[in-house]
Amino acid sequence: MAEATPPKIELRGIGKSFPLGHGQVRPVLDDIAFSARPGEFVAVIGPSGCGKSTMFNIMAGLETASSGEVLVDGDVVTGQHEHFAYMPQKDLLFPWRSILENTSLGLEVAGETKKTARARAASLFAAFGLSGFEDAHPFELSGGMRQRAALLRTVVQGRDVLLLDEPFGALDSLTRTDMQSWLQGVWSQNAWTAVLITHDIREAIYLADRVVVLSARPASVRLNLTIDLPRPRELSMTTSAEFAGYERTLLATLHEETLSPRGP
């Protein structure tokens, strides 16, 4: 904390073990440490089941860490929820609420009046490609639109940091590519600090300023790779030599990890 401006978020030595009963424990996270500058987009990749969602749950205050701390703007906020807006792996749009009511849910829960909450959410509908679907119900939307609605519900809360857990994991590759370039666009117009979990190495390089690679369970940070590609990013960049270089590095690190699983 000797620096002039502390990082927007910092994870210090986060560890987590789940009790399995009979005195046994399953270590899932082991000394996770990384940080993100204000407005930085950090992607996190790691082998399946290594503990990425668990790390998010700890940051969002849904799960207690066994050790370590979470800092926002230099202050310890471990266990607090109000700094992070969480977009879970499933879109979790509620069938009993219209899209507008779904997207304004976070503000309503935070105590805003229905009217203000809905007006705030409605003002983002155009940017999220959802105009005209305010009164539609979730089952009437395509997969890509549902993810955009879920993301709108996340960002409208106006929290310091966005936690996006595989937002595009369930989409077909064409829709996913569309969503990635769309997200790249809206992100560059807003100063969101975001952490994105993904299984898609190309998605990580294309969207992020930095890619954090986690090891197999119990997870620790294997690689913290800065992506030095100019912004705004074009889809054409994904075929550049630099892009391919990053891809090779990440693939090699990840490959080592998936081949050497540890722990119970």
Binding site: N57, L62, H81, E82, P88, L92, F94, G106, V109, A110
Partner: peptide, 14 residues
């Protein structure tokens, strides 16, 4: 009720 839905609400501070 979906556990993840409860977690989403908790993350919103409900």
């Amino acid at each position: 009720t979906d556990r993840d839905a409860i977690n989403l609400l908790r993350s919103m501070g409900a």
